[in-house]
Each structure stands twice: as C-alpha cells, then as structure tokens.
Simulated scan of single mutants.
Amino acid sequence: MALLPLQRFLSLRRGTSIASAAKRKGSSCQQGDNSQDGKRMRFSGPNLPMDVWHHIHSLLPMRDAARASCVSHAFRYSWRCYPNLTFSKSTMGLDEPKKYFNWSQKDEQNFVLVNRIDQIMKNHLGGIKTFEFEYYNSCLATSKLDTSKLDGWLQIAVTSGVEELEISLSLANKTEHYNFPCALLFARSGGNSIRSLHLSGCAFRPMAGLGCLTRLHLYSVHITEEELGCFLSNSFALEELDLMDCSDIIHLKIPCLLHRLSKLDVESDCEALKVIENKAPNLCTVSISSYVAHHSIGDSLRVKDLEMRCLSEFNLVHHVCAKLPASMPNLEILRIFSVGEVYSKLLDLIVRCRRH
C-alpha cells in the first residue's frame, strides 16, 4: 500500500507497476545489489533531478524502499543513499513463525540478519540520518553476534553524519556485553551531528561530551557515575535524560551547565541509585522510582510535572504530602503509582470486613 502514491506519481505504463516488480524482486533486493541490471524492470517515468528521486525514495518505509530499488537505476542509487536505516528481524523480513520454531532456526535467522545488514552497509554511499539496530539472542542459542561487524556499521553511520543512533542488544551470555566504540564519537570525523543517543544492553565509556546531543537514553548500560558526570558536563545541548537499570550509578550528579535540560526519567530498576543531585536550573518534568523518592533531587523549585512510582513501599503518599509542598512550590501535575499502598489498603479492608 505504501507504494501506491509513488506508483501513481510516476505514471507507469499500463501493466507495469512498482509494486509488482518489487514483489518479484523483493527478497533479493533486501540482501544487496546482486541483481543484474539487464534483468531489471524498466519504466518510462519523468526525468527528475537526482535529489528529487532521493527525496521521493526516502519517504518510503525501508522495506518498500529496498523493493523499489529493483525498478530502476535511479531508485537503486537512491537505495544506497537511503537515510533512515532501522535494522531488526521484523524490518529485514525475518519474522519468526509461530509454530515449529527451534533454536537452530533462530541461529540461522541471526546469521542471515547480520549478513544482510553487513551487505547493505558496505554498499551504502552515505547520508545516513537514522541508524537503529536491534538484536536479541536467547541464552539457549549458540550463535554469537560478531561485534566487529557492528563496529564497522557504526563507523559508517557516524562518519556519514548520523543524527539519531539507537543500539538495542540482548546477548546470549549475560556476563558479556558489547563495548560501544566511544572513540568513534570523539574522533575528528566523529559524532558531532548526533542529536539522539539510545543505548541498551552494552557498556558505554565516554571520554568527553557531544555538543549537539539533545536526548540521552541509557537502558541496562554499564557506565560509572564519574563517566556519566563527565559526559553530561560536556553535552551542553541536552534536553532529556532517561536512565533505566544502570546499576553502576549510586550518586547521579546533574551539572548546572545543562541549562536546556527540562526532562529527567529514572526507572525503578536503578536500584543502586541513592541520591540525585540536580543543579540544572530549568528541570521541570521529573519521573522517578520509589528507590530515590525519599531523597532530595536537588534544585527542584522549577519542577511543574512530577511522576513517582513504587511497587513495594507503603508510605509514599505520606512522604509526598509532607515534603513536596515546601520543596516544589511550582508543582502543577502530580502522578503517584503506589502499588504497595493500594495492596495494603485492600488487605486492611478485607480484614475489617471479615471482622464485621
């Protein structure tokens, strides 16, 4: 369906359509540019400038863009400049069947996924704006991710001027983790263009900050509080900070230099975190778990939107009523998720009912 507007725009000859050509050639196109030009389907479309072809092609979803590359030389070249690369089993046409699925098939899928991505990245000509890679491997699987290939893809993306970078990993061996190649970000041709960085399931050891970074999301990432503090102190454009299950951080320090930081989200899985020391002057939206709910979050006078979550504590509402009016005088929106207190009150109500 996504190809129909493009099909009408190009006014293809009757009986010839991008959709039908893409369907016949789709599987081979996703694996690279191995098709012979002589076997490609030709059409008589308007003679548009190459940058217009690139723009039209970039509006398609990635799988449709790969299929459309089988139609013409223009789209083939545009595919090699496609700006928004999202790699996962789903986007690469490797959806898992619901029945008769075993671990050898999972290993084969992972192998095919990595090799298809590797072929696409090696043929890419640059201009990448979004790079997303999602890789999940069960502990029962035998195959391992070739991290050297991932390093190579990241180098291509970063040197190409990527703006949104997302790596989500779940490796078979929980004792091992992928070491994100931070040196790429701080090299001369490094990550000066990155505006959004989302890392999950890896180790991140930054040596400086990123000047253009506005959003930082770290999920299950190995990073010390000193490393994070150094990174934040040199990422002056940061607007959003999201942490989840970062077990190496005990004392989160948010420096005063982050004048644009307006949103902070700390998930409950950061159990080691005990103190949030905030000095960012314009922080107005905060979402925190109960593990740090009873500790100061530093300069909170400007906070207008607060969300507090807990699963096991039984006095969060009392704490909110006693402490927040003085520490957050400008608070306008308050959301409390206190499962423990709800459960406790239900038990108390049941006991009382039984007594009567």
Rank of each mutant, 00 (worst) to 15 (best):
N179Y: 14
E225H: 15
G161W: 08
I223N: 01
G190D: 02
G161Q: 04
E225Q: 15
L185R: 00
L218V: 05
R215V: 14
A157P: 05
L184W: 04
G191C: 08
H198P: 03
V162A: 10
I223Q: 01
L216Y: 01
G161A: 00
S170V: 14
A208V: 00
S189M: 11
E163A: 14
L197D: 01
A187L: 07
L228C: 09
E164N: 15
T224E: 00
E225L: 04
S148L: 05
C212A: 15
E225G: 09
S220E: 12
I156E: 06
G229K: 04
G211E: 14
L199N: 02
E163C: 13
G229L: 05
F231Q: 08
L165A: 10
K149S: 03
L165C: 05
I167H: 10
G201S: 09
Y178N: 05
L171N: 00
P206L: 08
L210N: 03
S220G: 09
L199Y: 04
V158F: 04
G161T: 07
D151G: 07
L184H: 07
I167P: 12
A203P: 02
G152E: 07
Q155A: 11
E176T: 15
S196R: 14
T159A: 11
S200C: 13
F180D: 00
K149T: 10
D151R: 10
L169Y: 03
E163H: 12
R195M: 07
L232Q: 10
S200Q: 15
G229R: 01
L171R: 06
L213H: 11
Y178Q: 07
S170W: 13
N173K: 12
S160R: 05
C182F: 09
V158E: 06
T214N: 12
N192I: 07
R195F: 04
G209V: 01
G209L: 01
S196W: 05
S196M: 10
L165I: 10
T224Q: 04
L184F: 08
L210G: 04
A172H: 11
G191W: 07
T224H: 04
Y178I: 05
D151A: 08
V162H: 00
P181E: 06
L232D: 03
I167K: 00
L165N: 00
C212G: 06
L184Y: 00
S189F: 06
G201K: 03
L185V: 06
S220W: 11
T175W: 14
R205V: 12
L165Q: 07
S148I: 02
T224C: 09
S170Q: 15
N173P: 11
G211C: 13
L154A: 04
G161R: 00
C212E: 14
H222Q: 13
L228Y: 10
L197G: 04
L218Q: 06
S196C: 13
A187G: 15
L218S: 03
V221F: 05
L199P: 04
I156L: 06
H177P: 08
H177A: 14
G211R: 14
H177D: 13
C182D: 11
E226L: 10
L169W: 08
L218N: 02
G211D: 15
R195C: 12
L197Y: 01
N173C: 12
E164L: 15
R195Y: 03
E164C: 15
L216E: 07
H198N: 13
N192A: 12
T175I: 13
F231P: 05
G191R: 04
W153Y: 08
L210E: 05
H198F: 10
E163D: 11
S200V: 12
